[in-house]
Amino acid sequence: MTRLPMYFFSSDHHFGHERIIELCNRPFKDRAHQTEQLIKRWNAAVGPDDHVFVLGDFAHRATEGEARAAFDALNGTKSLVVGNHDGDAVKALPWQSHDPKAPELAVTEMLRFSHEAQEYFMCHYAWRTWPNDNKGTIHLFGHSHGALPDLGRSCDVGVDRWDFTPVSTHQLMARFQSVPPHA
């Protein structure tokens, strides 16, 4: 039985960044082990037909070749919501829009996305309020590496918060099932 394509969200992989292991107390021996584990965990969750919204800081201090190798090893199509460590080499990777009618959404600073009657607002940074927060829009962010608590229907989708694995729309809906709009 084939599975329908799914949407996932993730942030703050920091491919190529050795010091992030110590800074965020990540359970990896070194940057090569970190890269290997991030790819393994991503691919265990994400299928080839799925789409992942990367909410910034895909690679930091990685060579162009290292960033491209990590990108190519990851399942699914990928969009980038730019983070503070995403330089020109990261932005130039073959990101794809979730919407073939709007290719300009492949790399963007902020993004609004609707799926199964749920609206999402994405930015690398956490917002205190966001568009349509009073109508149930879920706000997804990264940057804080799990240090910033969720607020109402906002959520850090960074790898440090989600066992180094992208989070699905289904997981988010389960998390927010009992949280009222504008909580």
Results as ranks from 00 to 15, higher is better:
Leu4Ile: 04
Leu4His: 07
Pro5Phe: 02
His14Met: 12
His14Cys: 12
His14Ala: 13
Gly16Tyr: 04
His17Gly: 11
Glu18Ile: 08
Glu18Phe: 09
Arg19Pro: 08
Glu22Thr: 15
Leu23Asn: 14
Leu23Asp: 06
Phe28Asn: 00
Phe28Ile: 03
Lys29Leu: 11
Glu36Asp: 03
Glu36Phe: 06
Glu36Ile: 00
Leu38Pro: 02
Ile39Gly: 00
Ile39Met: 02
Lys40Asn: 12
Lys40Ile: 08
Ala44Thr: 14
Ala44Val: 09
Val54Asp: 15
Asp57Asn: 15
Phe58Arg: 12
Ala59Trp: 03
Ala59Val: 12
Ala59Met: 09
Ala62Asn: 02
Thr63Tyr: 10
Gly65Leu: 08
Glu66Val: 08
Ala67Gly: 10
Arg68Leu: 13
Ala70Gln: 05
Ala70Met: 04
Asp72His: 05
Ala73Asn: 05
Leu74Gln: 09
Gly76Ser: 12
Thr77Glu: 12
Ser79Cys: 13
Val81Leu: 07
Gly83Phe: 03
Asp86Phe: 07
Val90Phe: 03
Pro94Asn: 06
Ser97Lys: 13
His98Asn: 10
Asp99Trp: 05
Asp99Thr: 05
Asp99Arg: 07
Pro103His: 10
Leu105Cys: 11
Ala106Phe: 09
Val107Glu: 01
Thr108Leu: 09
Met110Gln: 15
Phe113Gly: 08
Ser114Ala: 11
His115Val: 11
Phe121Asp: 05
Met122Ala: 10
His124Val: 08
Tyr125Arg: 14
Trp127Ile: 01
Thr129Trp: 09
Thr129Ile: 09
Lys135Trp: 11
Gly136Ile: 02
His139Glu: 02
Phe141Leu: 01
Gly142Arg: 00
His143Asp: 04
Leu148Asn: 01
Pro149Thr: 03
Pro149Gly: 03
Gly152Leu: 08
Arg153Cys: 00
Ser154Cys: 00
Cys155Ile: 01
Cys155Ser: 09
Asp156Gly: 01
Asp156Pro: 01
Val157Ser: 04
Val157Ala: 01
Asp160Cys: 15
Arg161Ala: 09
Trp162Leu: 09
Asp163Ser: 14
Phe164Tyr: 15
Phe164Ile: 02
Thr165Ser: 05
Thr165Met: 00
His170Val: 06
Leu172Gln: 02
Met173Gln: 15
Ala174Lys: 15
Gln177Ser: 12
Ser178Arg: 14
Pro180Lys: 07
His182Tyr: 12
His182Arg: 11
His182Gly: 08
Ala183Met: 08
